[in-house]
């Protein structure tokens, strides 16, 4: 196994172009586990820890450009206002030690349905900035996950950053695990209200072969809120609407039975989380400060 250590982004792109099978490693949360378990033995490891640019973020007018290696701890500490859903998700990643190392780039690179960041990225509506020696492109998050642990990256591409719109309304994230910390998601749910566009976006983790949105549920809720004039009145959402939203979120799942939980439980739990996060975000939206984070 060769260990490639580019000193700059350009060198990293060149190395990836030369060795398309090279596995990028930054925090090592996923890659090192796979190597230690002997699940994969890559020919080349492409160490990105010397590329300082990847550890930086910029807060722009409308969006945040989040470097691929910005550790979850930094997101929790510094981007809570701008990216509340992702900050809540970051809280649930593994242990403090791992949150100090791991970043969103790793979650995206692995593209496991259980990655904690995915539901928040889907709900917020992110774009992945991918780059190769051939050039740079932005991949909408909806088109990024292409299969179980597969993504839309070309073999010579690396993830440089993620662009996420700054929250224009409350966002929430919930994750079910069978212990109260340091647990891989049995299933997870992200919800973002977008009052600017009067839309709602969702993200579901660990309940389908890829992270998915509950688009039918989003459309149903969007229409219900619009037609009832809820965005303007700030009235309480009727339980029947919340219930149907929850059911549609459950229906968006395509889960499996595995050692962590049953398919039936996953569907059920996604529905409960959908209903609860809707209540929390809507309560925040109704609040005077129009907070960007549900009460958490």
């Amino acid at each position: 196994m060769d260990f490639l250590r580019p000193a700059s982004w350009e060198e990293a792109l060149a190395a990836k172009a030369e060795h398309p099978t090279a596995v990028p490693i930054a925090g090592g949360t996923d890659v090192m586990v796979e190597i230690n378990f002997d699940h994969r033995r890559p020919e080349y490891l492409l160490d990105l820890t010397r590329v300082g640019d990847l550890y930086e973020w910029e807060v722009g007018e409308d969006s945040v450009r989040l470097g691929a290696s910005v550790p979850y701890t930094r997101i929790m500490e510094n981007l809570r206002a701008e990216l509340p859903g992702l900050a809540l998700a970051s809280h649930t990643v593994a242990s403090p030690q791992i949150r100090n190392r791991g970043g969103v780039g790793g979650n995206l690179g692995t593209a496991s349905p259980a990655g904690d960041a995915h539901p928040a990225l889907l709900a917020a509506g992110a774009e992945v900035e991918a780059e190769s020696v051939r050039g740079s492109r932005r991949i909408p998050i909806d088109a990024f996950y292409t299969g179980v642990k597969r993504n839309a990256l070309a073999a010579d591409e690396l993830i440089r950053a993620v662009h996420i719109n700054k929250a224009d309304g409350p966002q929430q994230f919930s994750k079910v695990g069978t212990r109260n910390a340091m647990v891989i998601a049995v299933c997870a749910f992200g919800l973002a209200l977008h009052p600017g566009t009067r839309t709602v976006r969702t993200g579901i983790g660990s309940a389908a072969p890829t992270p998915v949105r509950a688009t039918v549920a989003e459309e149903f809720l969007g229409a219900a809120l619009d037609e009832g004039g809820f965005w303007d009145s700030g009235r309480i959402i009727p339980p029947s609407v919340a219930r149907q939203f929850a059911e549609l979120c459950s229906a968006a799942c395509n889960p499996i039975d595995d050692v962590r939980g049953t398919a039936g439980y996953r569907r059920h739990a996604v529905g409960v989380m959908a209903r609860r996060t809707l209540m929390w975000t809507w309560e925040s939206y109704r609040g005077t400060d129009r907070a960007t984070e549900g009460a958490a």
């Binding site: 109260n180 609860r276 958490a296």
Partner: peptide, 21 residues
Amino acid sequence: GEDADVRQLPGGLSNTTHGEG
């Protein structure tokens, strides 16, 4: 404050309930 301390709740930091259920 208004916020629940999720560490004291089932689910912990996974933020699954603020007291519901």
